[in-house]
């Protein structure tokens, strides 16, 4: 069975993420900021009473700060539930057939993104496991920061 992809824009680049990991698409809201966390963590959103940690797509995909986020993707994979702020969701593509041989470039710093050339445009295919691993790492890093802060507060 072919994989469905959700295409979105981030800055001037286009990405596609497997639709199976997407639980919901929401309009972007201003998240509540979390102190002492990396810039890739945008903050916390209240989604119908449930807290959701959202990551800044620009920081995760190396686009840098200052991007305009209009949508938030709610990603679910097992117990992991995380939000991703993106520029704008464009469409759902059900027949995005990309062979491995057409993968043109893989960035060493972002190995979960494979750049392919599709219809004259460069599209970044997000490898879900790698992305979730990076997201998990970012969240862990933020928790470590939070733990260090708590320890520091206790010592003081």
């Amino acid at each position: 069975m072919a994989t469905s992809w959700l295409q979105f824009d981030l800055g001037e680049r286009a990405y596609a993420i497997p639709l199976s990991a997407v639980a919901e698409i929401m309009r972007a809201q201003q998240p509540r900021l979390i102190p002492l966390v990396p810039l890739s963590v945008g903050g916390i959103l209240n989604i119908r009473g449930e807290p959701l940690v959202v990551l800044n797509g620009g920081a995760v995909f190396g686009q840098g700060p200052g991007l305009c986020y209009r949508h938030v993707l709610l990603l679910e994979q097992g117990d992991l539930r995380i939000g991703l702020r993106v520029g704008q969701v464009s469409r759902i593509d059900h027949d995005l057939a990309v062979s491995r041989g057409r993968v043109e470039n893989v960035d060493d710093e972002y190995p979960f993104v494979c750049r392919v050339n599709r219809a004259g445009e460069t599209l970044g295919l997000v490898e879900l496991d790698g992305f979730l691993e990076r997201a998990t790492a970012l969240l862990t890093q933020s928790r470590a920061h939070q733990g260090g802060l708590e320890k520091c507060q206790e010592a003081c």
């Binding site: 469905s4 959700l6 639709l19 199976s20 997407v22 639980a23 919901e24 698409i25 929401m26 309009r27 949508h71 969701v89 469409r91 759902i92």
Partner: peptide
């Protein structure tokens, strides 16, 4: 956005 979410729910 609603149609996208509906597509996602249908896919799920």
């Amino acid at each position: 956005l609603l149609s996208l979410n509906a597509s996602i729910e249908a896919a799920r």
